[in-house]
Design a protein around this nucleic acid. Structure first.
Lengths: 267, 267
DNA sequence: TATCATTTGTTCGTATGTATC
DNA sequence: CGATACATACGAACAAATGAT
């Protein structure tokens, strides 16, 4: 049998190799935990150059199918038919008298408190461009799987002015922040926006991402619908390779007569 | 225990170039809409080879900062401080008598109905490995921005058996599916799982993704908490570069005495 | 309409560094 | 220590798309 496997031209060679290997992984020709043939061997197997193989391996890494380690090889870590191992619930439950219950995330380090100017997505979601805010940065992790995530709480000064204890000790657990806002007379509702992108180099370092897997990014906005004020912004950045977020979508019982059509942020 | 929890290698030249260009974009040195210097010029500017520049450009593309077009150049499309233009609401509202209201998504083509064997994440979420299901595939788009997304509804045969009209005409709007399940006597609750990964080559084609931006992937599970049955799975794949998902997190009014700790799918 | 310079896309080859066994 | 294998980088060539002449 020829040393060359059958491939043609139309999509790029690298894409064809990636598809071929992905299909081989999916149908079990390469088992999870096994190492793929070396890059040098693949060059001969598919009759392509080193750069082509490396491009193909890069695609497989970003798809979350393999993991490459210098000096060892390319290891299959998934068949593509699995869900990420860590499930991060994003629910909020209201307690009896202004208390709130949130799924817990363990803190990896002490929170870092700083004062910043609102900018970028948080400013857009809060509708407060260039206003000052207190920023509380935490490195957290899921206690079940150890997945590290970056969490940031942004408290606009306008909000802190109405909840003075927040300004004094902003590094309290999130549910206490909600309680203090409730005690300050606010009615709290929440909306969360989810997107994803490739990590910036500094984010790769901070979160210890070895590959180029994307980052899930959420912005949770706490707002008071009666006063039409947006009070708080929380940002969470989590590696999509090892995380999935879980949202409870069960609607409230009664459908109020008005249709609260909430949309946009951008139109 | 090892002394290296999260190692950090010194940044590669490609990463340094990417960081430099990203910083220049962020502080306005390159404006949105403008084309970056050509690759050949950048090789001289930074004193590196073409492969290094191309790796750096690849990073910037995946971060969503630039877009490259053959024959034209590399165009800045974002400063990194913006939210994706399309907001896809993922809320569910209950109507008066078993009716349901969902945010509308326009259909790009006629739905494709097929019968498949449950596999991968849908099988895991439904807890029905290797069971048969009706699959309804739609290409949908956000009417405001035109963003294309792939939507799939998976109706397990076990569910269709209890809602016969579903099996006859499964390609009805999603809210009608919910209504038929309600009429069949089910109490519906929903949970949605969100993750992200790089697209597979065929997904890049189907969704018309020119770059290597990641894909947001959601699985919405409709289940009956009383019968403890998982009834329906909907999958949505949307390009993260142009989409953000919006979830309403406002909790129900009363905190039932029991704490419905919903977690995992994976432990 | 056809040609040409510019620019990115793809592929190959080679060399060196570095982690693993 | 040496062999293996991935990581990074440089150089070169040609293909393909674009826009101007």
């Amino acid at each position: 049998m020829s040393a060359r496997e059958h491939i043609q031209r139309r999509p790029t060679m690298a894409t064809q190799v990636a598809e071929k290997v992905a299909a081989d992984i999916k149908r079990g020709r390469y088992q999870v935990g096994e190492t793929l043939p070396s890059e040098a061997l693949m060059e001969q197997m598919y009759g392509v150059g080193k750069a082509t193989i490396r491009t193909a391996m890069g695609e497989l890494k970003r798809m979350g199918l393999i993991e490459t380690r210098q000096g060892k090889g390319s290891i299959v870590i998934s068949t593509g038919g699995t869900v990420p191992p860590a499930t991060i619930p994003r629910s909020i439950q209201r307690g009896s008298k202004g208390s709130w219950f949130l799924p817990e995330l363990a803190e990896a380090e002490a929170p870092a408190i700083s004062r910043t100017s609102l900018d970028g997505p948080p400013a857009i979601h809060l509708g407060q461009q260039d206003q000052d805010a207190i920023s509380v940065d935490r490195m957290v992790y899921d206690p079940h799987t150890g997945t590290r995530m970056a969490h940031r709480t942004l408290i606009p000064l306008a909000t802190a002015a109405d909840a003075p204890r927040l300004a004094e000790a902003p590094d309290v657990p999130t549910n206490e922040i909600y309680e203090q806002l409730t005690q300050a007379g606010f009615t709290l509702e929440f909306i969360e926006f989810v997107s994803a992108r490739a990590p910036f180099p500094d984010e790769r370092m901070a979160l210890g991402l070895d590959d180029a897997a994307p980052l899930l990014i959420t912005y949770r906005i706490a707002f008071d619908p009666e006063q039409e004020r947006r009070l708080l912004c929380e940002e969470l950045r989590a590696p999509a390779a090892t995380c999935q977020l879980a949202f409870d979508l069960t609607p409230a019982k009664a459908p109020a007569k008005r249709a609260p059509r909430r949309r946009s942020e951008s139109e």
